[in-house]
Amino acid sequence: MGCGRLRRGCVVECHGQEAQIDELVTTSPHFARLWEAHEVVEFRSSLRRYHHPLAGDIEVSFVRLAVQEAPWLSLVCHFPVPGSESERRLRGLVTLPG
């Protein structure tokens, strides 16, 4: 929610996003409360944990790469610690029989 509010502030001329936010505020009391709270947060690299139905528990670090020419766009990359159990499990997903 906070990242969406932060992105909306970057691009004033993004009318499609404004219309979508206006619709959500009107149709979803939950969204309206969250949006009104105005909790804008800066993205910080960190650790995430997932549970994959085949691989089990996976822990990955993630970073956000900014697009210099388009500050409203970014690429978030997730990666396991090299040599970790999470890396082994993710590699196992790549080699699953098709």
Rank of each mutant, 00 (worst) to 15 (best):
G4L: 14
R33Q: 03
V41N: 13
S46L: 07
Y50R: 04
R48H: 11
P97N: 08
E13Y: 05
P80N: 10
G16M: 13
Q68F: 14
H30E: 04
V25W: 11
E85I: 09
H15D: 15
S86N: 09
P29E: 15
E13T: 09
R8L: 12
D22H: 06
A37N: 04
Y50K: 13
V76G: 00
M1W: 00
E87N: 01
F62M: 03
R33L: 06
V63R: 03
S61G: 14
A37G: 08
L75M: 14
P97T: 12
H15T: 14
S28Q: 06
H52S: 10
E23L: 14
R44I: 09
T95L: 15
P82R: 13
E87T: 03
L90G: 12
H52E: 01
L96W: 10
V81N: 01
L24S: 06
L75C: 00
G4T: 03
A37K: 06
G9P: 06
D22T: 10
C3I: 12
H51K: 14
P53I: 05
I58V: 15
L75T: 10
A66G: 14
P80Q: 07
P29A: 13
P80W: 02
V94W: 09
I21D: 06
R91I: 02
R7W: 05
Q17M: 15
C3S: 12
S84N: 07
G2M: 04
V40R: 02
R44Q: 00
H15F: 14
E59Q: 11
V25Y: 05
T95I: 07
V63T: 06
A66I: 06
L75D: 06
A70Y: 00
R88L: 04
R5T: 00
A19C: 15
H52F: 09
V25P: 05
L75G: 01
S84P: 02
I21M: 08
V11M: 11
G16A: 14
C14Y: 15
A37T: 02
P53Y: 07
E23M: 11
V41H: 10
L90P: 11
L90S: 08
G98M: 03
C10E: 03
E18R: 15
L73E: 04
G2W: 11
S46R: 01
E39H: 13
H30G: 06
I58E: 11
V76C: 13
P97Q: 11
E23R: 15
F43Q: 10
S74Y: 07
S61D: 13
S28I: 07
R33W: 11
Y50V: 08
V12C: 11
H52Y: 12
S28W: 12
P82F: 01
A19L: 15
E39R: 13
A32L: 00
L90C: 14
T95F: 08
E59P: 01
Q20K: 08
F62Q: 10
H78P: 04
E23K: 15
H38C: 03
A32F: 12
P97E: 11
L73Y: 08
V11F: 02
L96A: 03
